[in-house]
Design a binder for these strands. Structure first.
Lengths: 360, 360
DNA sequence: TCGCTCTTTGAGAACGTTATCAATTGAAGG
DNA sequence: CCTTCAATTGATAACGTTCTCAAAGAGCGA
């Protein structure tokens, strides 16, 4: 196998411009203390020869690797892919992350890591050693894993935790989950609903619980009860069916349900249909995520759009600033938006006269 | 900014095992001519110290970069992402590509490149110079772009063209588009349909035309006419609406429509509904791609599942074998499957008695 | 003009790995 | 036991970039 060599190197540029390697390097990296005339001359050679620095060599010499690694959970992700479950979390991360990386001359690389075994550290450690990324983006549930955050902090690699609370190691980025759930709940309250069910995500995801908090606080503010109205799922379709079934088979069933994921909302839709309920006449449904699917169901679902792309983009910016040694700006929490579609409507009139249905 | 150095290097391993660097390198790369005892001794040190080779350094020394680059069209992809159109092409590529890469110690990196401007070459050239990937996967419409394939061939970088015909530069991988379209058409013919419409993709995608070929050949084999039954779209929802409208507003409208993408199928569904047609009683619909969306429409759509993940996985394998100097196996064409759901049914009985409706 | 400081440029080492070629060891054949 | 050749190991030079530190130049006040 022939040894493939880089076609145009910094040497060629230096020779062409008649300067030293170091000067060319300075121009490439936009360092200060280069005379404008010199800078221009070097830049001309760079353009003329079509020179692009080798990332491998840059990394070798101890500077940046220009790689941001996004860590996703292997099991979860693959299960979704195989089943074509259609969560577009990864898609949206790519959108936000890749574009922002590209703007700064970085690349984003997705790495799948198993949460559910005991060698998370080893696996992640190997990925880091191999690629030496300048920054890492953690997504739930990894963002809450102290083994992982500890490892990264120890190695001094900047990282952002998406969907994770402020404080602690690394940069925390949230998507306003509490606020978003409150938004959805208030929307339903305004439509006259007094019994609003909630299908929560799994407990190991903090954001699951923040959403529950938001729902509860909105109910409390309106003087409504939450009792017996919360079931837990695992974000997947099957668990959503079970949860919806439980909520709907009670005597005093809710007239509206908020599901913590699109899949669980779809399941709720199916269960409701199976019980002969019309949406939204008999039951209003709000879903979380707003992935492509929910626009094409019958009826299209009202949903909370989680700003994954924007949050990832922001995380990338913070990491790059961090790596560049610039004083990074504060992390921001990007709140989601409520997208109202046809799956939510006025509450069945029977309940309208009596806002407080608390009975237990 | 402190110069971050690799924690455990090949030097440490060599010192620990009491051998030369080169021997360690040989063990890492599984080269022949290392005594088993020696190999074991070195491997022990590697495991003990948790050593992982630096990809940057490996690439520097002229060997592989362990990176496979997947090139996607920037405009198309971003538009889909922004609109949450829900094509899961990228998702499926990631599934197939990343897992296979991971198995071989490679990484897959997605790179977005603009087709629609004149500096495709420069953009791609820069990405190659920066990352020096061991292999490249091209997706439509890039896989048919002679500028790109020429560039890659010239630089001697192995590449696979997905959705592109055999012959020509690089490795061609197809997904049996002709066969798949024939499959869908035959399914409808068996259900008694005699006027089967087809919504094709844009002409610059060869696979669009292969699908048309498959549809036509199945019709011909059954003695049916294709005349006036093919419209073109651009894979997107809006274009699907227009095409479906055209097909359905004729006097002699088809009783079944095959759409070349899920989005166009969804549009057809909507147009049909708007015209008061019941699916599948009045109109059968088959879609191409089988992305997550189509399982949750009402009714769920019969669809051709394009084996994107499998094809990408296979492409990665071929590229890695190529890079390893092994004599690569032949590229294979992975045919798709027809997934029958509720959107296809028996043709309206009127047509059943007279299979040949040719009139023009 | 001299001497000082700050700016601009350059030379050479270093980064962690593999390629190349030389040196050593071991085995087989006479 | 010696020769011959292959198998195994090692030493050194790349690879393309940035870092460190030294040198040269420029500006400025006395």
């Amino acid at each position: 196998m022939a040894r493939r060599r880089q076609s145009v190197t910094i040497k060629h540029v230096a020779a062409d411009a008649g300067v030293s390697l170091q000067t060319v390097s300075r121009v490439i990296n936009n360092e200060p203390n280069v005379r404008p005339a010199m800078k221009e001359r070097v830049q001309e050679s760079i353009d003329k020869l079509g020179y692009v620095p080798s990332i491998a060599a840059q990394r070798m010499s101890g500077s940046r690797s220009y790689i941001i690694m996004a860590i996703n959970d292997r099991d979860l992700t693959i299960a979704d892919w195989r089943a074509r479950e259609g969560r577009d979390w990864i898609d949206q991360m790519l959108l936000g992350g890749m574009l922002t990386c590209a703007e700064h001359g970085y690349r984003m690389l997705i790495e799948l890591v198993d949460t559910h075994n005991d060698h998370v550290e080893r696996e992640l450690g190997a990925a880091i050693a191999a690629l030496q990324p300048d920054g890492i983006i953690l997504t739930p549930p990894h963002s809450e894993n102290p083994l992982i955050t500890g490892l990264l902090a120890e190695r001094g690699i900047p990282f952002a935790r998406i969907g994770s609370k402020q404080g602690g190691l690394g940069i925390a980025m949230t998507m306003g989950d509490t606020h978003n759930a409150r938004l959805a709940t208030e929307h339903l309250i305004q439509l006259g609903h007094t019994r609003i069910g909630f299908i929560a995500g799994p407990e190991e995801f903090s954001l699951s619980n923040w959403r529950v908090d938001g729902w509860k606080s909105a109910l409390e503010a309106a003087g409504l009860s939450a009792e017996g109205l919360c079931e837990r799922g695992d974000f997947g379709f099957a668990s959503g069916s079970i949860a919806a079934e439980k909520l709907l088979r009670t005597d005093d069933a809710p007239s509206a349900i908020i599901a913590s994921s699109d899949q669980m909302a779809l399941a709720t839709l199916e269960v409701a249909r199976g019980r002969g309920l019309q949406i939204p006449r008999d039951l209003s449904i709000v879903s979380f995520d707003n992935s492509p699917i929910v626009r094409f169901t019958q009826p299209p679902l009202t949903a909370i759009d989680q700003p994954i792309a924007e949050t990832t983009s922001r995380a990338v910016e913070l990491l790059i600033e961090n790596a560049s040694g610039k004083r990074p700006a504060e992390p921001i929490s990007v709140p989601g938006k409520l997208i109202v579609r046809a799956s939510t409507g006025k509450a069945p009139s029977a309940n309208l006269s009596e806002p407080r249905t608390r009975s237990a």
